Amino acid sequence: MLHPVGDLPAGVYWRRRALVAALALSVVGGGGWLASSAGAGSAPDTRVASSTTDVEPTLDAPSLDQVVPSLAAVVTPADAAPTAADPVPTETPADVPVAADPPAPTLTAGQPCTDDMIAVDVVPPAPQAAVGNKPTFTLVVTNTSPVPCTRSLDAGLREVVLLDAAGARVWGSNDCFPEVSSDPRTLAVGEAVSFPVQWGGLTSEPTCTAPRVNPAAGGYQLQGRLDTKTGGTTAFTLV
């Protein structure tokens, strides 16, 4: 190696070796320079990134529950309470149940006359009478039902009473002179049965033990009764 042998002079071979060695050194030197340049160029970037990290901290990304509202806080139209302006739904007449009227009782000809099948009235001989007079009143029982019916019209069940303007009892036809009789009747449709009742012109009460006196002049009312059926009132005046 140190003593090249060839046809050319020895100096030629040494120059060639020197040229190859120089090329090798150039390659090695250039590679080292490139390596040092690359290392030197990357270091500032690292320091800048580190400096940026220290000075300006990165902002954390908002969590999902901050971005998307909670479903519990979202009010849907179905959950919204009606306001005063919102119309309140009401049932239509077709939706409102209608209570059915109870069936009318079946009436049979010849059945007993109930209280709602008859009317009881008192008819005075005149709208007024003098104090102390003894007028005769008429008690009238009428079948107001659409069928004939039966009813006991016994004397002990019939009564005419005189009431003052406040509705207090003044006289009753059965107080002092009660009568007893058996009088069942079959009343035709619309039939009216009349019974005369005379008043003695004095006050009375059911036991007939209180003193009997002439009532004062003024406005009164007459009312008839047949057992449990009580009729309306008729105005009557004493003068």
Rank of each mutant, 00 (worst) to 15 (best):
S145D: 06
F195C: 11
L187Y: 14
S182K: 05
R169Q: 06
G190M: 10
A155G: 08
N143K: 01
G172D: 09
P196E: 05
A168S: 04
W199R: 02
Q198M: 15
T138A: 13
G156K: 12
R158H: 08
T138G: 05
L157P: 00
N174A: 15
R169H: 06
P146D: 13
S194E: 04
L162C: 06
D175H: 10
S145H: 00
Q198N: 12
R158N: 11
D175W: 06
L187I: 07
R185S: 10
A168Y: 03
L157T: 05
G156E: 11
G190S: 00
S182D: 09
G172A: 13
G190K: 04
F195D: 02
R151I: 11
G200S: 13
N174Q: 14
N143H: 01
V140M: 03
S145E: 00
T144S: 12
A165H: 10
V161F: 03
A192V: 02
F177R: 11
V193G: 01
V141W: 07
E159V: 01
L157C: 07
P148Q: 02
A192Y: 15
L163P: 11
F177Y: 07
T150F: 05
P148G: 13
A192H: 03
G156F: 01
T144A: 09
G156H: 13
T142Y: 02
V193I: 02
G167M: 00
E159Y: 00
P184G: 08
G167P: 03
S182E: 06
F195R: 11
T138V: 15
V189M: 08
V193T: 01
G167A: 06
W171S: 09
S173N: 10
D154S: 15
C176P: 05
V189Q: 08
C149L: 00
L162G: 12
P196D: 15
P178W: 02
G190Q: 00
V147C: 05
A166K: 09
S182A: 15
W199K: 07
A166C: 00
P146F: 13
